[in-house]
Amino acid sequence: MRFLKESKQFLVVAFIIYVILKALFVFGVASSYIQQIVQYAVIIALTSIGLNIIYGFTGQFSLGHAAFYGIGAYTSAYLTKVLGIDSLFSYIPVLMACSVISGLIGFLIGIPILKLKDDFLAIATLGFGTLVRVFFDNSDKISDVLGGSRGFVGIPKITNLELVLFFTLFIIVITRHMINSRFGLFWRCIKDDELAASSIGINTANMKLMAFTYGCMLAGFGGAFYANLYTFLHPSNFDILKSIDFLIIVIIGGMGNIVGTILASFIWVGFIEGLRIILPSEVLDIRWVVIPILLIFIMMWRPYGIMAKKTK
């Protein structure tokens, strides 16, 4: 329980945010659409923290994060639908299963591909993402429930604000401790200079694999919540463009900055989903013209992200 005490300030802020959100929800100030996108933003934050571990802390560039998010989503959707789960207590084991499966697949795929560096790792993870998408597209040949390219329908709606928020908080506290532990130090060493890290006795292959697996496990949780929030899945929700979304969030939030990632997720979801209520659709299309330009400018002026900690 020591680590809960150390994160006290953070937990107090989080609890205040929860009370405000709950009040807004209960008194009907926020419409059900807004309630949904608030939960969605928390899910995106959870998944993006996973990518921040892989890319921001350990420096392993992954363009396949949406695949692990998708694996979590499909696992949860399948388990909750087939087993008929609708209560919160029986949902927790399902969540664990999703995360373990995402993590296990990340582990197995990580053993060969983490030997690659930079751009080849990007292409390999992108390739894995496409393979997973092809698998989802053809999944109706394995089991009709999965729906294949028609999409997975009729998933029970279990995700609610308390579950998502408190679970994500729990994960964030654990993640902060991972980062402040020996392992977190090793990860940052590998990011700065892999050769130097291995020369001082860090087992770089194992540490990279650990960071990658952990990041994939968080994506698995995120995916599971997503499936049980929207109750409908389609393979196109988990393609390259989705992986790029997570990447943009990590870059806006700053590499190696957890709080920045959380803020960036809310800004991002607000920008992409929230603006739909206010603006007409002609204006909305311009969002995706502005975002890439912003991305290029960020890379020129702040290559480690807008909210990144200052580096020498």
Binding site: G59, F61, D118, D119, A122, I244, L247, I251, E282, D285, I286, W288, V289, I291, P292, I293, L295, I296, M299, M300, P303
Partner: peptide, 22 residues
């Protein structure tokens, strides 16, 4: 190297979404 790669992704997205405007 990665900054360059992300810029390349940015250019790619820009061309796609700019041309896809109504």
């Amino acid at each position: 190297k990665i900054s360059l790669l992300i810029t390349a992704v940015g250019v790619s997205l820009f061309l796609e979404y700019f041309l896809s405007l109504k």
